[in-house]
Design a protein around this nucleic acid. Structure first.
Ligand code: MN
Ligand code: MN
Ligand code: ZN
Ligand code: ZN
Lengths: 151, 151
DNA sequence: GTGATAGATGCAAATGCTTTGCATTTGCAT
DNA sequence: ATGCAAATGCAAAGCATTTGCATCTATCAC
């Protein structure tokens, strides 16, 4: 199986950052590229296994942290799940709304903080370099189930 | 030293929730009430010590989790710091902008997500029950220091 | 006030995600 | 092909947080 073009791009991006291109990193990137939701290191590890790549979990941790360091990925911490999660940072970054019951995730298309950040820079003198947003609620399906249980 | 009126309120609030009023809990609430920024369990523990209250760290963990459970406090996870943090949830909840260099914190007075949450409920059918926002940047002082170092 | 009891605490051990040291392997420049 | 710094695998350590259990205590009925 040849690598998708995005991976090649990412790998080139890495070499430009003075980082070596390895089988493990390619597999990890492939998983991250294929996902539109944040993944924990363990989940990334599982998915590389499913793709027949034998990678050590430490390698996953080391590489995703490197991606974050180089601003190629974003790290969050999922409190419900109790783990850090990672996703590639794209110019059109996304935020998510998660159902606290079943875990369903809805993607929020535009960032609600863009304007706020500019305003804050004016007001505070801070250089705002990043943000995280987590939204949680109960999805329609779980709402129905929960209201049934309450009878 | 008699307890401030807010603490009494909080303790009453607790008994209404069927929770016992103890020396330890009073001290923890005092610390949380006195702080306008989120605190880690360990930081809360230290501050109760400074106030001459001898409390076990487990008790802090158990109580703040209980507060979160009862929606009396909000839990976040400070990725830079690597720890969960807690703050009392007030009706006029606040968000913060943190300097990644010196840790200075600026309070954001109005929640930029209120409108978005209502819009999301319309669009997705989710019942949106909460959110977290973290903003980070570099404060003016650190910006000056950093630009000096670069010479 | 006294006693009964469910709930709270302290302590220490366990948990589990994440990090790290080190021997070995490997990408990549020459 | 060779050399070497960087990357990996493995196992052990780190460390915030959780948990089991014995002891204590707030609260309430009497
Ligand atoms: Mn955004
Ligand atoms: Mn808000
Ligand atoms: Zn759901
Ligand atoms: Zn600063």
């Amino acid at each position: 199986m040849s690598k998708p073009v995005e991976i090649i791009d990412e790998l080139n991006l890495l070499s430009e950052h003075g980082v070596r291109n390895t089988r493990q990193r390619s597999a990890i990137l492939q998983v991250l590229l294929a996902s539109d939701i944040p993944l924990s290191a363990e989940r990334i590890h599982e998915k590389t296994k499913e793709a027949d790549a034998d990678i050590n979990l430490s390698t996953v941790y080391r590489f995703v942290e490197m991606l974050v360091e180089k601003n190629l990925a974003t790290k969050s911490f999922n409190l419900e799940y109790g783990r850090a999660t990672f996703e590639l940072s794209n110019p059109h970054h996304r935020h998510h709304l998660t159902c606290t019951h079943c875990g369903e995730i809805v993607v929020i298309r535009e960032c609600p903080l863009d304007k706020l950040c500019r305003a804050l820079e004016e007001d505070t003198g801070f250089a705002v370099i990043g943000h995280r947003i987590e939204l949680f609620g109960v999805c329609p399906k779980c709402q129905r189930e929960l209201s049934t249980e309450e009878l």
